[in-house]
Design a protein around this nucleic acid. Structure first.
Lengths: 249, 249
DNA sequence: GAGTGGTCTAGACCACCGG
DNA sequence: CGGTGGTCTAGACCACTCT
């Protein structure tokens, strides 16, 4: 890192250098949860425009090192929480650990790609279970579980009238009786929609990890789960590494 | 989308609405590979400042719908390519599909977290194999494979003198003879460092998916791979879904 | 109401790519 | 060289949270 090294690349952006300096400061001069000086003061201290400082903060937030809340301030984020997303051989969508909390069950129109996976025409509503994953008391993921028609019997009048969470749990119970063949998963980067952002206590457009799981039963895709994880606070784990199973790490 | 809907949320940001409009235009009026009007013209056309337009484009690029190249322009991106990252029971780090290309083998200092996984003191260099994953002719991921000392014998003088790729392949060959117990993986969001960005043909700071794999042999972590995937162009798949195995999907 | 981060503007200049 | 996206500025106002 000596400045005397010859023929360095031309013009390192200010925000990049700023990010490096800030990252080092976070390691040495701040502790988790501590509040940083406000953006206007930081910008002045470093002699840059606020927009430039924000570019550096944006990246640090993306890497999960900072947490910003409007009206409150910027704090040093704790290490990302590990969330186990292992396939688990013949487990169905309702067989996850106990941290998922059923929210509601209703009909909704899946995205075109999901409808295709289910072998249905686009635009048609299907029974959908909505769940939220809590880690350390905070919601870190939301999931929409789209069910193939006829997978579970139509709900009785009793459950249909009940409150949302109760209806959802009733459907999940029935899903446990389905003989599942297997599943496959995909992870990609996305940005939170308005609804997901609200549930995750983030701003719309925040980066999220989207996990799409296809569950197969009787030789075809019978359910598709689209889970949206906060990218700033979550690390998805596959395998037996230290992940939150019941209590937090 | 009717504006007459009552009690909508207060003040939708301009860039958010802009993103929605652009996303729809991409679906209906543009085809993959097509070049969009330049940013100054788009901003003028929508009656916003260029910075605001760029905020919308940033999100669309994050979602993998656009591809921007300095000095060239903004084009409509093809669908993300699926990359299989399935664990594969007792496979070692050298047992992947044929798309990985060995680049070099040298000594390097792993990050503190990696050193801890390997049971080594921080700051100590270890033998490291560097690989690049090509998909459709383009590099989409880079990987540093950190090896526990003593895992493979010191290289003979012949390989030590050879060019980088040859040295790397020689080490990978030796790794295939190691009896591996298993592995576990974690996926998280990060931003590309200067070196990774160069190899992936991206700007520093670009969002990447970081896959950390720990390989165990003889009951302990004997190798750690840190792979960096372009988040804009890659979808990581676990399972038997349509992923690129030999040729592209 | 005071203070924070989020949005937005209208410019300027720079780095890079292609012809 | 001209045109593109990338960086940067110095402001302004807004939405939100807390007191």
């Amino acid at each position: 890192m000596s400045t005397s090294s010859p023929a360095r690349q031309q013009s390192e952006p200010k925000y990049w250098h700023l990010k490096t300096v800030l990252a080092q400061a976070l390691d040495t001069e701040f502790s988790v949860g501590q509040t940083l000086p406000n953006e206007r003061e930081l910008a002045a201290r470093f002699g840059v425009a606020r927009a430039t400082l924000r570019q550096a903060l944006d990246q640090l937030e993306l890497e999960g090192r900072l947490q910003r809340r409007r009206g409150v301030g910027t704090t040093v984020a704790p290490p990302r929480v590990g969330v186990d997303v292992s396939p688990g051989r013949h487990a169905g969508p309702a067989a996850e650990g106990g941290a998922w909390e059923a929210v509601d069950c209703a009909g909704s129109v899946p995205a075109a790609a999901v409808a295709r996976d289910l072998g249905l025409p686009a635009g048609r509503p299907v029974r959908t279970v909505h769940r939220v994953l809590l880690a350390e008391g905070q919601p870190v993921a939301t999931e929409q579980l789209y069910l193939s028609p006829g997978l579970v019997p139509a709900p009785g009048a009793a459950q249909e009238r009940g409150p949302g969470p109760e209806r959802a749990r009733a459907v999940l119970d029935r899903l446990r009786t389905v003989p599942w063949d297997g599943q496959d998963r995909a992870v990609e980067l996305g940005s939170a929609g308005a609804e997901d952002a609200r549930l995750l206590d983030r701003l719309p457009g925040s980066p999220v990890l989207i996990v799409t799981t296809r569950y197969t039963a009787a030789g075809r895709t019978a359910a598709v789960a689209v889970a949206t994880y906060r990218a700033d606070t979550c690390r998805l784990t596959f395998g037996d590494r230290e992940a939150l199973t019941l209590t937090a790490g």
